[in-house]
């Protein structure tokens, strides 16, 4: 068991940062992100016999993590009700002089209200830097589908920003 544990731990260490970051981006809540991350690892470890080795282990683990996160978010529906206080937003404002706080909130809300399939691809690609190849493998879709979803997500954000796109840059 000792050897097993070290091996589990090595796998955990090699992957936990990216999994947690993605879970946090999706959930916007530390407790949920930790839950999703832990659940993903435990599920992966319990299903190791199902890992066929035809994809990278990290990709397989990401698939489980995304599935766990989406299911968890459906249960709590927190991402649609998330409220961002002005206090929380203040440090962000200080990092970017050009965005009006109202526009920033609107932008965040626009991402929140993206449908699940668009939001997931958008968060993975534009915020966490996953390639379309990685996203496609993780979500079990074609690379072209990932690109199309990102295009649609960006288009919806542009639409949501609407007139502010003309106004917010001082």
């Amino acid at each position: 068991m000792a050897g097993d544990e070290r091996a589990y731990q090595a796998i955990y260490e090699a992957n936990v940062d990216r999994i947690y970051r993605l879970a946090y981006r999706m959930a916007g809540d530390d407790d949920l992100a930790k839950d999703f991350t832990q659940e993903a690892f435990l599920r992966a470890f319990s299903r190791l016999d199902q890992f066929r080795g035809d994809a990278a282990f990290s990709t397989w683990l990401h698939s489980i993590a995304v599935s766990v996160s989406l299911n968890g978010l459906r249960k709590v529906d927190r991402h649609r009700k998330r409220e961002r206080s002005l206090e929380d937003a203040a440090p962000v404002a200080s990092r970017n002089r050009q965005l009006d706080p109202g526009v920033r909130d609107r932008l965040n809300e626009a991402v929140d209200t993206l449908s699940e399939i668009y939001r997931t691809v958008f968060l993975m690609h534009d915020l966490e830097g996953y390639s379309h190849g990685e996203i496609a493998e993780t979500l079990g879709v074609a690379e072209g589908t990932s690109k199309a979803r990102l295009f649609r997500a960006r288009a919806k954000l542009r639409d949501a920003l609407g007139e502010e796109m003309q106004e917010y840059v001082r």
Binding site: D17, Y24, R25, R104, N108, L127, L157
Partner: peptide, 19 residues
């Protein structure tokens, strides 16, 4: 402008703390 908005999101939308 949209690129700047994306950069803002990257820094400000559910920014993960240290793992």
């Amino acid at each position: 402008k949209f690129d700047e908005a994306l950069a803002e999101l990257r820094a400000g939308y559910n920014p993960p703390p240290e793992t």
